[in-house]
Each structure stands twice: as C-alpha cells, then as structure tokens.
Design a binder for these strands. Sequence first.
DNA 1: AACATAGTATAAATAAATTAGTAGGATTAA
DNA 2: TTAATCCTACTAATTTATTTATACTATGTT
Lengths: 152, 152
Amino acid sequence: MPPRKSITLTEAELRLMKMLWVRGESAVSELVAAMPEGEALAYTSVLTTVRILEQKGYVRHRQEGRAFLYSPCVEEQEASRSEVRHMMQRFFGNSRERLLLSLLGDDEIDPEELQRLKEAIASAADDLNPTHGDDAAVNGAPGGLAARKVAL
Amino acid sequence: MPPRKSITLTEAELRLMKMLWVRGESAVSELVAAMPEGEALAYTSVLTTVRILEQKGYVRHRQEGRAFLYSPCVEEQEASRSEVRHMMQRFFGNSRERLLLSLLGDDEIDPEELQRLKEAIASAADDLNPTHGDDAAVNGAPGGLAARKVAL
DNA sequence: AACATAGTATAAATAAATTAGTAGGATTAA
DNA sequence: TTAATCCTACTAATTTATTTATACTATGTT
C-alpha cells in the first residue's frame, strides 16, 4: 500500500500558507511576486499548490473580476496546534505531558531559557480560561481540523 | 524541483523504529513476525525500510550467521526531540516558548490536565541539571542528529 | 476584428515513500 | 549430490508531492 495523502501541511503547502497568513487574501500572481528571492516559482506551480490547500480546507477563494483571490480559512495558531497534536500522537503516545517534558529536557536548552519558560508557563497558566468544548477531545487527526473549521 | 528526501522519520520508518526500540536487536524475519495483526508486511518490504533507516543513521546491523541483526543507534528520546525541533522550526520560528504556549493554550485541554502539567513542569525544572554542551546549539536539522550519533 | 494580455484548467514529468516480486547465494536436509 | 530452505540484493509498481509547460478563455487594445 503506497503512501497515504498527507493530512498535515507539506513543505510547499506550509510555505504558501505562511505567505497567506502574513498577506491575507491574495491573488495567485501576487503570491508569485511575493516569493522570496532565489526560490521563485512558476505561476502554475503556486496555483496547483493553492488548489490542494483548498481541497484540504486550509484556504478558500472568491472571484474578483477574472482572478481568484485566495484567503486562509485556518489560522496559523490552529494549523500549528493540529501539527503539534499530530506529532504528539506519533511520538508521545498522545500525552501532552510527555511532549512537554521532552521539550524541557532537551540538552541544548540553557538555564536562562529554562527560567524564561518557567515564568512564561506560570503566567500563561493563569490566563488560560478553561472554557473547552466537550466534543472530540481525543483525536487531533484530520477530524480535529475539520471540526474546527466549522467553529471558525 | 521534486520533493527532497525526508530528514525526519516517515510513517513506515517510525513504525519499524518503535518495534526496534521495544524489541532491541532484531532480525528482519523477527520484525516481520512481530508485525501487528492486520498490518502484516512482506519480508522484502521490511528489509527495504530498515535499509533506508540504516542509510539515515537510525539503525546499524551486524551479521550473525547468515542473517543481519538490526539494532537502533538513535534512542527514542533523541529521535523524538529531533522531531520536536523540526516542527519548532517549521511552525514556531524555532522558539521553544511559542511551542510551549501553543501546547498549553490548546482549547481541548481540560483544567485538571493543565494543573497536572504545571506540577510536572515545576518538578521537572528543578531536576534538570543545566549541564549542556556548547556545540551546535541552534540547528536541530539533520546535523543535530548526526552530531548526536557521534556522542552516543 | 485581430491581437496581445492575464488568468484558470489540464496534463505531465520527476523524485520520494511504500510495498512487494523475483533472482541468487549459502546452509541444511534427504 | 540434489533439493529445500532461508536470507539478502535487485527490480519494479503504485501513490503522493513538487514543479512546470501547454492549452484554453476572457478581457482589453489597436
């Protein structure tokens, strides 16, 4: 059985999403023009990828004159969280705690940063209001994203 | 330019690595036999993947009689951390703090778990001894893994 | 109206990822 | 010694991911 279609963002897809998150609604030609120096892409390359993103539910488009304007319909924060959940499943038995401890236990972390993280956690934990939905709390796979799209 | 060879663990690769982390040194036939019910694989399929893993530096082999015995040469913890670093680069501008806040800010988290996480962080932060190497602190890409291989 | 221009749609080419079939070599069994 | 068995090596088929060329369509210009 060959590889399944990726549910998360691939490299080319993420590159485009980052541009859309920064620029907001954009025509394909604008995305092409906004490509960073040295990694220019053909118009049709961008078009193909942005259409895949639309199939995946990450962007939508509306017509303005004869051009399509694409805009993200999944926020960067939500896409990032989907990605975190995905890797939490793959590598940490779906345990936030294990992921978190791995993050803090990294050898390459220096003491000052660790201190900053502790402070950030302390203040963040207070701000977070525990209003959470009761549906589909465990998955985090494609369903997690789809369910969220409705909520947006 | 077509997709670049993946530096992180693909699905089939991770599946095998998990078995090797649990079982330790194993012959290909043993891995085939140990495959979970319903996702059996042909001998050659496992062989191909484990050879890719060897190319990537995740496993090594020695000869025992006429069979090759494969054993992991990257620990699960280290592979997981490489993966975390990779996604930290892709989605969080290489900032541990941003990843951590995203993790704690997830809507689907419930108050009790948040409390558990805070406690885990508090105790973990004390235990972590700040003895960190001074080399290659920023990368986390393929180099991060390669550099670690030497240290193991 | 003829022509250039700008945009989308379709098709295709390349490489990676996954799975497996077949061939060949060595060891064991009859 | 011949046959069966077990293992690796090579080859291949399929799908996804990435990129682009070509064709087609509509708008605007001369």
